[in-house]
Amino acid sequence: MADRSAKVWDELVELMGEIERDWWREARAMPTADDRAEARVFALNGLQHALEFWSQADPARPWFYRWFSPTKKLLGDNPDAIYYGSVIDPGRDYVIRGNLAGAVYTSFTVEQGTAGGAMSSGLGATLNDDEIEVNADGSYELHASQNPQPGNWLALSPESGSITTRHYFEWDRPAATDPNMHVPLSIEPTVDPGPPAIPDDETCAEGLQRAITFLRSVTVNWPSGPREPLAWSSTVSNQFTNPPLDEGNRAIGYAAADNAYRSTRYQLGPDEALEIRGRFPQCRFANVVLNNRFIQTPPYRSRRVSLNRRQTVLEPDGSFRMILAHRDPGVPNWLDTAGAPTGTIFWRYLLPTEQPAQLETRLLSASDWGS
């Protein structure tokens, strides 16, 4: 065929086969049918985002797409947050308008190296609501450009390819489960590019190519095997590290500069549970979230797979005791594994003003769950 878009369409179909073959490689450590089924579900979520976000990307006429939902999860989704993203052209100037909408935290992060659908190579400029002039009604306006602007300015660089927004909520229920939840947000170029042309062979091919690039980056090109550990990510299962606070997140694509993270891999037998004891530091927001190997949350519409400070029952001395278990232990602060024998426990402390306390853990047998 002479159609370029037909050729790229075939490349997308071929990539789906390549992804399937990749799950079977020994380095991916997916020996069971259920392991590979979990991987296929993740790939479908990645494809969903690739088609929605990247195939429709138009930096001249940008739009904020919602990154995650209860049915679209990747790259570390958070039940207590609403995320949006938009592609940009660093050679253009943009005006962004929005409203805090009751969020306990709002921020804008420039992702570097994402042009054409590539994975973020790190963080560029960031702005949070402490750094933005906000009106009494919660509304704000900021400019994104390479040239400095008065007032709220989000600095772009030649490597800038997209903007990610974060809106955190500490509710009794996960904010991401509310189907009516909407954060007012818009982005427009300061110079009107005029209306777009109807899609043609070239624009269709370019959209498909961006989708392929993104999907490949989160599947077959995702590293396998041992990697250099991050200070906040424990290499010992069921135990947490507690490194000093720093700004090490800026080299991690799609991370949040204002977050201090703590993470470990949990390993539980059928009749085992993990007790986690600690204290929340002084911070803007804090929660703990369970993830699978693909940094996806388990089904949180019907399972308690995360706990924020408002949802957590504290001990008389202000500390907390959480129990990670396969079934309800009959005590407060149950984190439901949904039956997964292994996964990741991931903490976020947002804008902490003090060093977080060490998270202490203890492996329990079924008879000890409630004690």
Rank of each mutant, 00 (worst) to 15 (best):
S139W: 01
L208A: 15
A255G: 04
T164S: 08
T235Y: 03
A255L: 06
R173C: 02
Q146F: 00
I252C: 02
R250Y: 12
N152I: 10
L245C: 06
P184T: 02
G207Y: 07
S160Q: 03
P150L: 02
I252E: 10
F169K: 01
I252R: 11
P226A: 13
N152A: 09
P184K: 00
R173I: 06
S162Y: 02
G225N: 08
P189S: 12
T241D: 09
F169L: 08
D178H: 07
V220K: 12
E159N: 11
A231Q: 12
N180G: 14
V236A: 04
L154D: 01
I187K: 00
S224A: 09
Q149V: 07
E170S: 14
W171M: 09
R173E: 13
S224T: 15
N249T: 14
V218K: 00
A251V: 15
F169Y: 15
P199M: 12
E159R: 12
S263W: 08
D172C: 05
V218H: 02
L142S: 04
S217V: 03
T203F: 04
Y261P: 03
N259K: 02
L245V: 08
E206H: 08
P193Y: 01
V220Y: 04
Q146T: 03
E141H: 09
A205F: 07
G253F: 07
S233K: 08
S237R: 14
P179D: 10
P174Q: 08
R227T: 15
T203V: 05
S217A: 09
T264C: 14
R262D: 04
Q209Y: 01
S234D: 04
C204V: 13
S217L: 05
P189A: 13
A136W: 11
M181C: 12
P148Y: 00
I252M: 11
P148S: 03
A257V: 03
A144C: 11
V191D: 12
R227M: 12
N242I: 05
S217K: 04
P150K: 00
A231S: 14
W153S: 04
P189I: 07
